[in-house]
Design a protein around this nucleic acid. Structure first.
Lengths: 327, 327
DNA sequence: ATGCCCGTTACTCTCTGAGCAATGAAAGCC
DNA sequence: GGCTTTCATTGCTCAGAGAGTAACGGGCAT
């Protein structure tokens, strides 16, 4: 009654053809990390496994997706395109279980937001307080990080939301969905005795004549500055004498006459800076050459949003968004 | 140099924990089909395989997702919720390859649209012509199907787009993203000699006094009618003497005095009906009791849209959408 | 020059997930 | 009412996908 199975050579068991999901995930992770090795560590598996997944995908699609240039790997144009399409799906998938148990009511309410200190301290100050009031049961983690670091925290699931500065010149990665909140013009800060005090609108070349005190390379003001300088081919003219991670330090050294800084206004406003320092500083709008810093709310495309995160996002958007933004 | 592998009992190989993608797909397909057997056929695999996938998912999530009631299976509330979240992902995933090769330029341009004949012949008439003109290289398949059938064609990948009637009372499945195009009031059609000719706005009870000639049970007008009658508890009062699949037939028998019909105006307008038939018919707006038929454009949530499909959708929306719909 | 790290290939081994067979119960048919 | 069909469900076996480890070759940095 049971002696029939070993007689089937033409077995049409499909097993799992086209598994492709982990292949896609491997590709996406590789794209993020820029190397198979790093991606494999992040995925908790061995390098050859990741490598083979990506290669299987290439075989499947019949195009080259990834090319090893020197030490690390770069995506081909096709690879870029595929990652753009697929990354939201991977995000959505990985966040599925969390959202589900959240809707089910048995999840810890936790909101981790990454943002530069300036945003946390001024722009969002009242909104965070209001949220705390309407959602007292949510455990809030506010992570102070420069814009680019905040991206990465969002990408690596270490933050649920990021609110960062996005200069007009520097494009955001396409894997993020961005919502424009407010725009601030970039300004130079200097002593009242500085030559700039007599100039209404300094130009980029004017700025480069003076020693500069700038924010860290991951901050939006610095990214914009570096980007525009590079575009103008003026890199050799730059004289950055100091890079500071926090605004109080920058203002301090500006007050000491060591150089001029590039910032946005709200970054300095809600700050506990000695009044004698503050009073001696003046601001000059340089949006004509450096543009604006757009404060945007970032969320990875496709990642599901927990209810309490959504609530926060909506509070932020309602509280800050200019009418102009929505047409 | 090579004699070390068989000495590792505490092997930390992860193999594939949390595969979950096919599990999710199995769940979604089961939800659609209402039975493991049907789902397994559609997925091209054996029933127990599908069954076990879904069960593994339940184990993983620790809740019951699906319950076998009698012969077929029904989703629990949790299952419903999970499917709502996951179905767009499955759609997106399955459409990935197609979109990718489409962007890559080496795909056949094919647009399959499902819609009831009335929509195809009147509402979309000019838009289809215009699209044909701007995109001559796209192979167009227009599939004439009643609303509910059109849903199913869209779900089963037999159509790329569906434009159907959605009565105000009957909710659309949540797996679709719907865009409202236009609204038409339901009307009764009868002979000019009919008693209705003297009544401005017949009520549901008035309508039920007469023999009815209705469209097929998959059409939107019929769905709405059945739904409202059931809600009012008047099923035993209904006297449907005829169900016809096409509008010309319906009008013919109305003209013969066999009964009254329920339709929307555009369904009859662009129609080649003998004028002697047409002239003897009158219409009465019954939107007060039967509501409106909303013509909506349907697209499965998450499924990627090919460029030429998107182009068509945008032409339709721009060509038809009332300003009022966008707030 | 040397060492480190990364991509790439070859190999082994394990456990997942495929089908098949069988059972009981519900649904449909005569 | 009995008979057949079709379903969900369970146990079984087995192919092979995919995990790891080891090893090689080529850049990059000290």
């Amino acid at each position: 009654m049971k002696a029939k199975h070993p007689a089937k050579p033409s077995d049409d068991r499909r097993y799992f053809k086209e598994v492709r999901f982990r292949q896609i995930r491997a590709l996406v992770e590789t794209a993020r990390c820029g190397s198979f090795a790093e991606a494999s560590r992040r995925l908790g598996m061995a390098t050859p496994s990741v490598w083979r997944q990506v290669r299987a995908l290439e075989d499947d699609y019949g195009v080259q997706l990834v090319a090893a240039q020197g030490h690390d790997v770069r995506l081909t144009e096709d690879g870029e395109r595929l990652v753009d399409l697929a990354a939201p799906l991977v995000e959505g998938f990985d966040s599925l279980k969390k959202v589900f148990s959240d809707q089910h009511g048995k999840a810890e309410r936790h909101l981790r937001m990454a943002a530069p200190a300036a945003v946390l301290n001024s722009t969002l100050r009242h909104i965070i307080a209001a949220y705390r009031h309407t959602h007292p049961q949510v455990h809030l983690s506010l992570i102070d990080a420069p814009s680019r670091i905040a991206w990465q925290l969002l990408e690596t699931e270490k933050a649920d939301l990021a609110i960062v500065g996005a200069p007009e010149g520097v494009p955001l990665p396409s894997r993020f969905q961005a919502e424009l909140l407010v725009k601030y013009p970039f300004e130079v800060v200097c002593l009242e005795s500085h030559p700039f005090a007599k100039i209404k609108a300094p130009k980029l070349r004017d700025i480069l004549k003076h020693p500069l005190i700038l924010a860290s390379e991951d901050s939006s003001s610095r990214m914009q500055f570096d980007h525009l300088v590079a575009k103008a081919g003026l890199i050799d003219r730059v004289n950055v004498i100091m890079t500071a991670g926090n605004v109080p330090s920058i203002l301090n050294y500006v007050a000491l006459g060591m150089g001029v800084a590039i910032l946005t206004r709200p970054a300095t406003e809600a700050l506990a800076v000695p009044t004698d320092v503050k009073a001696r500083l003046i601001y000059r709008d340089v949006s004509a050459c450096l543009g604006h810093d757009q404060v945007v709310l970032l969320h990875p495309k496709g990642r599901h949003e927990l209810a309490h995160v959504r609530a926060f996002r909506e509070m932020v958007v309602k509280g800050l968004r200019r009418k102009e933004g929505a047409k």
